[in-house]
Nucleic acid binder design. Structure first.
Lengths: 195, 195, 195, 195
DNA sequence: ACATTCGGGACCACCCGTTCCT
DNA sequence: AGGAACGGGTGGTCCCGAATGT
């Protein structure tokens, strides 16, 4: 293996490992409670590499992790929303998928962005911006699906916001109450609206 | 002032000062980023008194603060919801009040419970429970107003959950985007539903 | 029961409980590692009473506990040493008793004075003095027994010091090594000397 | 100075400074009364470095300090014991050296291990083990000298234990009584035995 | 270029021994 | 005699540079 290739792959895997581990820990514990040492230990990557890949330190690392989580979930949302021609069915599947993930993780994994977004809204412009971008991408996916279902442009924007807000809020309530009930209630209401 | 009164007020004020300061800091910064030293300094109360009033430490203090914030906001919600016979107007005023608070604080003060609830959902049963109680009390207030507006019992429960979730979610989006738009979008959609 | 009597007995029992609990904790953990809160909790006596009975605080309480332990062990030593006309047998029984106590407590209870004496030798004249008195009383008991066995006065003093020092040192070694071997080795050597 | 040398010396000096300072403070004050802040301040090394060199915290630091003290004193014992062909003279010099150190330090510096050994015997297996190793190394040095002086193997083991225990105990008594008398008494008795 | 050791303080939550006032 | 309150200090860990290999 040529040195350049090994170097590139090593670089990529270290960086990726940091981002992946960080995203996972941020989702479960939030920003302030997640320690850099913890990230380093769990990722398996060498500690000295962290400030090479992320000179901005914890903040840059978290922003990258939030962005990555945003992109990933945006893809999942688009995939689910396009899985049915029926709007209500599509939205129902979206809520179901989130509910399943929440239950599977014993209420540990809700929205991968919301906790950090709330924590850092007034503390880090960089992370806030990454979170805002993630939310915007999800909103865009929802709005596109609503437009495809026949909504007018302004109505689609409002409804997309309602859907995302209701889901985000339901995830908050569900984690606090350790119950899927808020998600299923919101699901019912959203389905009723879609008809 | 008689000694007993001074003692009583002093006793009460220390504890109250801790709770009030904690609630304020938790709302803005979340649980992990809020230091006990910061709470002590800002509250003006003596440090040694903290573990007298809250032997359970930070966790107990936070749970008390979340509970207090829950009770206070529950009162405000009930008050606003009963300020108009028209359901849509009542809900609109509720969203307006939250939006005004958010704007007045430069997007620092969203939901006083949500951030901490997400952070501690898997870390502290005590705080999670306090947050769940707060949410439940707000849900109850909303549901009562919906029943008064003619909703059937099960429909009222679902709709109350949708309203609270949508508002909570809109507050998350609004803080992340530094914009009141999500709140006004959700407000419009909720009003349309109320008609 | 007249008030004075009740008060006196209550006072005495609180005081005694403090001293007894303190002596036990000092023996196991030493001075610095023993917390006043721990003493209060374990003794069952009210915390506010501590500074009534011991205005000198932790130091006075510890000195009292060391003195009490010294008196108690002096009595035990005298009793054991007078249990046999044979000097070797008497000394053997003394070592055996200490070894039994050490083993019964899983090497937690060695000399009730030595740990605190070493810790506070340069920190508290009051406690050091109490410990010195305890050692002196034990030396006196040993010396008296040696005189009774026919030792000359100066030889008795030296031999008593050797015996006490060897036992104290063996207790140190035994606790560090979690073994009774040092005690039995010393016992053998001391017996050989007594013949 | 070349970079490598400076680095090596700097690296070594921080760790060494911690160990040396800790050993000194532990000898005088014991384990529980010795604060990490005190160690850091007196050593002159930065606090952040402490947990790099000693991830195990205070316990690991103390165990290292005890081990180092054990090794150092073992060397001194061997050196003194081999300074004379006469066993009695060799043992006398050993006691004299310890007595001189005690007096020079105003009874602050007795055995560098005994205090911590007693304090932590039941609290920290790690420190207890380090102390046991130190005692074992001293015992081995004594036993070797006794074998060289013609003792049989089992007799040498017992006598070595007696000598070490008597010295350790005499140091305890000497510090408590602020007098060298126990050491000189024990010295006389030990010399008589050696003849 | 890339990785890592090592160093650097600030700060954390917690609890201490003490005293005040009843 | 005693419950409430008090500051200061505990050990521990944080996130992060700077110096040093490889």
């Amino acid at each position: 293996m040529p040195p350049a290739a090994r170097s590139a792959s090593s670089r990529a895997s270290s960086r990726e490992a940091f981002v992946r581990t960080t995203a996972s820990l941020l989702r479960r514990r939030g920003y302030a409670a997640t320690g850099l040492n913890e990230i380093v230990a769990e990722s398996g990557a060498p500690k000295g590499s962290l400030y090479f890949h992320f000179p901005g330190g914890k903040e840059e690392l978290a922003a990258s992790a939030i962005s990555a989580a945003g992109v990933q979930l945006a893809g999942a949302i688009e995939s689910i929303l396009s899985s049915s021609d029926d709007l209500g069915e599509a939205l129902g599947r979206l809520v179901d998928a989130l509910a399943a993930g929440l239950q599977a993780s014993a209420y540990a994994e809700g929205c991968p962005v919301a906790t950090v977004a709330l924590e850092t809204a007034c503390e880090s412009e960089r992370i806030r911006s990454a979170a805002a971008d993630a939310f915007a991408s999800w909103l865009a996916a929802l709005r596109a699906r609503l437009l495809a279902a026949g909504f007018e442009r302004e109505a689609a924007t409002r409804r997309a916001t309602l859907v995302l807000a209701a889901i985000e809020g339901a995830l908050v309530l569900a984690r606090a109450q350790r119950s899927l009930q808020p998600l299923s209630d919101v699901r019912e209401e959203l389905l009723a609206l879609a008809r």
